[in-house]
Design a protein around this nucleic acid. Structure first.
Lengths: 208, 208
DNA sequence: ACCTGAACACCGTTCAAGT
DNA sequence: ACCTGAACACCGTTCAAGT
């Protein structure tokens, strides 16, 4: 009874060794169906066939679990933005537009991560230095696009950090409003069109 | 014992009549110290000296209470944006900048309302038609600024709704990032400078 | 009409104790 | 080293019963 014969599959494969990654993966799965507030450590433990106290061996508390997911998210975001920016390195306008759309697409495709990274029940990033660092790396990537564009004479001169904040806040706002369903958009194609149009407006200028 | 003499103050003034507004006011007070997730109906009831079941006489559930606060928030926002926009009706660039700053200032000064209106544990606006309508009224106010500017020849031509979305997402992104402390800003003066600079960048155009 | 008290099914977190 | 089980102090929500 207490030993497994060859044909048996262990009923709870997470008992030893990989509970931490299993908790993270399961959390992302649960987040896909709800928000961070309705995610519970007890439910994760239940799903993984482990006692409700077991997660506390791997995470100090619920916020620490969320912070780990946020960090993961920033790494994914950096990778995707990087890939988008790399496609047209000598067309700054297009590079910026692709970068912006990659940002919003990430928010729409990985809402679980995005929601934990920003807004709602997200743990205050300031309390988790690794998360803060991951976020700044993503910002740094955008900064490079701006600086390259300035060198190529295709982006207005000015403090690059300010221009990057302007560009970031634009796409960040779009991502949030789209996720909150505050904009009348039905499918992803419409999303992309809207985002590219807004980025274009920002490039050309709203005033006259 | 069971009657109040002239000098007595009733220990629980909310027992009859005004529990609903009292709950809303107390909720805003509690939200000032935490987020929507950590607001509890039981705590509100406790603070108001009422049983934990009493709130359910006035709100179907916790989300309904939050939706009522969100609606209040949209009304406040519309009033403040309206006041800002009215100051320089014949200088569209300035009007747009003032409107944008009024939006972000609202988010910074009334974070309790802003958080419930957008993101985090906010009740899905789609479930509360009054909230949706209040939000659209705010958007409509911005739309008017854009259209007036176009008529005056100071804002680029194009679909006004698209231009309004671009402007909205810009300031909305700024508001969220500032509230999340993702931007290195220390006081309100710096916030205002940053917001006005971003709005200016959007007006002049990022590209060249 | 409005409020109470008990009840149910949940949480996060801690801690002694087990293997 | 990692996990369990009981325990504590909370939740949201419902419902019979009180005034």
């Amino acid at each position: 009874m207490s030993t497994l014969t060859a044909g048996d599959r262990p009923a709870r494969p997470y008992h030893h060794g990989n509970l931490r990654p299993a908790l993270l993966a399961e959390a992302v799965r649960v987040l896909a169906e709800g928000d961070a507030a309705s995610l519970s450590l007890r439910e994760l433990a239940r799903r993984l066939g482990v006692s409700h106290a077991a997660p506390y061996r791997h995470f100090a508390d619920k916020d620490a679990l969320l912070a780990a997911i946020a960090q993961q998210g920033f790494e994914l975001l950096v990778a995707q933005v990087e890939a988008a920016a790399a496609q047209h390195p000598d067309e700054p306008a297009r590079e910026l537009a692709d970068t912006g759309w990659a940002y919003v697409r990430f928010a729409l495709h990985q809402p679980q991560h995005f929601q934990v990274m920003f807004g709602r029940g997200a743990p205050p990033a300031t309390a988790y230095p690794e998360v803060l660092a991951a976020g700044q790396q993503a910002f740094g990537r955008l900064l490079r696009v701006i600086e390259d564009g300035q060198r190529a004479g295709r982006i207005v001169s000015g403090e690059p950090r300010e221009l990057a904040v302007a560009a970031w806040s634009q796409v960040h706002g779009l991502a949030i409003l789209l996720l909150d369903r505050q904009l009348p958009v039905v499918d992803e194609a419409e999303c992309e069109a809207l985002v590219r149009r807004c980025v274009q407006i920002q490039q050309v200028g709203l005033g006259r």
